[in-house]
């Protein structure tokens, strides 16, 4: 009778040891997996900020060049649109899960070490689905 009771407890101990060894770090990472709630307001707000930032930078550079070269208002107009395009590019990248990186094609082997690069508002595996 005694030797019938001990084997289950020993094998469960072995299981627990295995779990403690393998699971220690994994569970921690799982809890801390980055990724923002992908709310519509959040996305809309981020998109707005990206656009505005592009336009602002374009306009500022255009204005500066106009002052320097005396080409008022042409540089401002040109750079305003370039900035808007740049902003849209950033929006596009953010929306397609390519992060906010410059350079609009992905590397052949995906987008680097992690799928959470697009965590800026995207679901954590949004980019993986793409790639």
């Amino acid at each position: 009778m005694d030797d019938k009771n001990s084997p289950p407890s020993l094998s469960s101990l072995a299981d627990r040891v295995k779990r403690a060894r393998g699971g220690g770090k994994g569970s921690l990472n799982k809890d801390l997996e980055p990724g923002l709630p992908n709310s519509a307001i959040g996305v809309a707000f981020r998109v707005g900020v990206e656009m505005v930032a592009g336009v602002v930078v374009g306009a500022a550079i255009g204005y500066g060049l106009d002052q320097w070269l005396g080409t008022t208002p042409w540089m401002l107009i040109v750079f305003f649109f370039l900035g808007a395009a740049g902003g849209m590019m950033n929006v596009y990248r953010a929306a397609t899960g390519q992060g906010l990186s410059v350079g609009y094609t992905k590397d052949a082997d995906g987008i680097g070490p992690t799928g959470s690069k697009q965590a800026d508002g995207e679901s954590p595996d949004g980019g993986n689905k793409e790639g």
């Binding site: 707000f45 900020v49 592009g54 930078v57 370039l82 740049g86 950033n90 410059v102 350079g103």
Partner: peptide, 22 residues
């Protein structure tokens, strides 16, 4: 190239405006 440069330069602006505006 100008678009990419502008898109790169807009990073600090979007970064700071996002936090500030929120």
């Amino acid at each position: 190239i100008p678009i990419e440069i502008l898109s790169y330069l807009s990073r600090p602006v979007s970064l700071s405006v996002r936090l500030f505006a929120n």
